[in-house]
């Protein structure tokens, strides 16, 4: 029964996965191709550096015209993670609660597969889903040198991993809430609400003192909010994101075992 349920779930999400990947790639391609027009624009860079609120609105700090700053401001600190989260929260809510509601889970859970194995396969599908936007983004950046855009590839790879983990974490929240409540709406609502709050905390932390103290609680801070594309991902960043993923996944199993599946 090798991963047949992982493959089934990914097949059922194929359109949205491919569509989002193509959309993200096309957008990022334009961003990368536009870099030569902005890289020497010192006024833009100075304006954002002198106006930390405007910078925070983009979820960036530091120079916007450096390769890392440009990618951060246009993709990796904001739009990229949000697209990745859209996919994972959508799948997380659908994988248990959504499929329970539409009757498919009742049929699969009655097959010769334990709930633990079922959850394992869905968690793997979530991991694959979480990788889609970050990996396609990394791939598009590989053409950056054609447009004078040469980020630090190791840091870009690290942020690819941290963004995927961030997306996995919020998808896992949706999965957990779905397993606890059996409600797709609750799963979507709670995970999206937490993600929005976490994003705000991380992006406003540099300019609002009170929020600054809360940034530790935001997974965005550990993934992209501490300017990881410029300064690099630390082991602590990675550890926090992995531990969150592990706790959420572990907490989902007992809830999923208790869930009544119609």
């Amino acid at each position: 029964m090798t991963l047949v349920l992982t493959r089934l779930d990914l097949r059922l999400r194929r359109r949205i996965l491919v569509g989002t990947a193509v959309g993200a790639a096309a957008y990022l391609l334009v961003v990368v191709a536009a870099y030569p027009a902005f890289k020497d624009d010192t006024t833009l860079s100075e304006m954002l550096q002198s106006n930390s609120a405007a910078a925070a609105a983009f979820g960036i700090n530091g120079s916007i015209t450096s390769p890392a700053g440009w990618l951060n401001a246009n993709m990796f600190a904001n739009f990229g993670p949000l697209l990745a989260l859209m996919l994972t929260i959508g799948y997380g809510a659908n994988s248990i609660a959504g499929q329970a509601g539409d009757g498919l889970l009742g049929l699969t859970a009655a097959q010769p597969v334990t709930r633990a194995a079922l959850l394992q396969q869905k968690t793997l599908a979530l991991a694959v889903t979480a990788l889609v936007v970050p990996v396609i983004s990394f791939a598009v950046c590989l053409i950056g040198p054609q447009f004078d855009l040469t980020p630090d590839w190791t840091r870009l790879a690290a942020v690819t991993v941290s963004t995927a983990l961030l997306a996995f974490d919020f998808g896992a929240v949706a999965m957990l809430v779905g397993a606890l409540t059996g409600s797709k709406g609750a799963a979507l609502g709670v995970a999206s609400g937490l993600a929005a709050a976490a994003y705000l905390v991380s992006s406003l932390a540099p300019i609002i003192g009170v929020v600054h103290r809360l940034r530790w609680g935001s997974p965005f801070y550990w993934a992209v909010g501490d300017d990881q594309l410029t300064s690099g991902l630390t082991w602590a960043d990675l550890l926090v994101l992995v531990v969150i993923a592990a706790i959420l996944t572990a907490a989902t199993l007992p809830s999923f075992r208790r869930l009544d599946i119609p």
Binding site: D102, G103, L104, L107, Q111, P112
Partner: peptide, 14 residues
């Protein structure tokens, strides 16, 4: 469960 075949009352297939 390999020994059990099940047809749900409300069959929903993708």
């Amino acid at each position: 469960r390999r020994e059990v075949g099940y047809l749900p009352g409300e069959l929903h297939l993708p």
